[in-house]
Each structure stands twice: as structure tokens, then as C-alpha cells.
Computed example of a mutant assay.
Amino acid sequence: MLSRVFLTALLLFFTPILRAQAHESALSEKEVEILRETAYVASDRVLAFVKFLDERSNSIQQLATKPRRPGREEDIHDLCEQFTSIADELDDNLDDYGPRHRDIRKSLPKLLAATDRWATALKTPADNEAYNVSRKLALEAVRDLRESSTKLIEEQKAWFLAHPPPKDEPAHAYEERPH
């Protein structure tokens, strides 16, 4: 009897926490599945993140350019927070890929070009206290991604010039080998 009461109390304590964590996820279940599928090919994973960030920035831009509706500022705030969370996750991945010499040369120029689009989209909404802080954080995340990708482009050029992939292996196979 005492263990059942303890178990019930434990469940009641953790249920709101678990619900809050599920609600706060910046990625949809479909997007999480895409990241799982692309986990073994770093370049594909980077491009998946670019797609997710494009979707968030496009949504922000659409909200800002369409006629105002109730809740728009809160939606922009939430999208900016999602954007920042996804951008930070991508930056963490880049931090991991660099020292491991994962071949992301094809995706880095696309990522670098995307940072300009994202910065423009994030600057589209007029100033508003409801989202100014979250937008500032999103713009900082874009700046960090721009810096990381610029640095990685140079590092990857130098590394793969000194360590060319074997001719008989596909690029993604080379990417997975320890270096």
C-alpha cells in the first residue's frame, strides 16, 4: 500500500515535467525522425537542419508580412525560440564534425548562404517587446553558425587536400572512417 502511494506521488510529480519537456521541443516528431535517418551522413544531417531553419524563418517572415492577427507576436516569439534551439543544435553538430573530419564540404556553402536568408527573415518583423529578446538570441545563433561554417569551410579544404578520400570509396563511406 505504501509503495503504491509513493509510486502515485512520484508519477504526479513527474507528469507536468514530462509534459513540459514534450511541449518545449523545437522539433516535430517528423523532424526528429529525419535527423535519426540522416545521423550517419553528416552532410545530409546539416542540410536537414538547414531545411528546418528555413521553415522557421519563412514562417516568421510570413507572420510579419501578412495582416496582423491576434497572437502573432507570441507566435513570432515561439518561432524565434524554436529557431534558436535548432540553430544551437546544428552548431553543436558542427563543433563535433570539425575535429572528427566528417566530410561536410558539400553542405557548408549552402549553410553559409542560408545564414544571410535567416538574418533577413529574422529582421523582418517590426520591433516588439513580445519577441525582441528571442529574436536577438536567434540572430546571435545565426552569427555563430556563420562563423562556424566559415571556419569549417577553410578547415575542411585544408584537411581533405592533405587527406584525399580513396577513389574507390563513396564520400559518405570515407566520412565514417576514423581519422
Rank of each mutant, 00 (worst) to 15 (best):
L7K: 15
P165F: 01
N58P: 10
L90P: 03
A64H: 01
Q82A: 07
Q62W: 14
L145D: 09
A162P: 04
A173M: 10
R72N: 07
P166G: 09
A22T: 13
A171K: 13
H179K: 04
L18N: 07
H77V: 05
P166L: 14
D92Q: 09
F49G: 01
L79K: 07
K167E: 13
E140R: 15
R117C: 11
A119D: 13
P109H: 06
A121C: 04
R135H: 02
L152C: 09
S107N: 08
L145F: 01
P164D: 08
F14N: 03
L53S: 02
F49W: 15
R69F: 11
S43W: 00
Q21F: 11
L47C: 04
K66I: 04
R102Q: 14
L161I: 05
I60C: 02
E169W: 00
E31T: 07
L122S: 00
G98I: 03
A87C: 02
G98S: 09
D44F: 15
D96L: 10
L90V: 15
Y131L: 00
P166N: 11
P70K: 12
E81P: 08
H101D: 05
F160E: 06
L47Q: 12
W159G: 01
A39F: 06
R143V: 08
F14R: 06
S59D: 10
R146G: 05
R72K: 13
E129Q: 13
A113F: 07
F83P: 00
S57Q: 00
E147P: 06
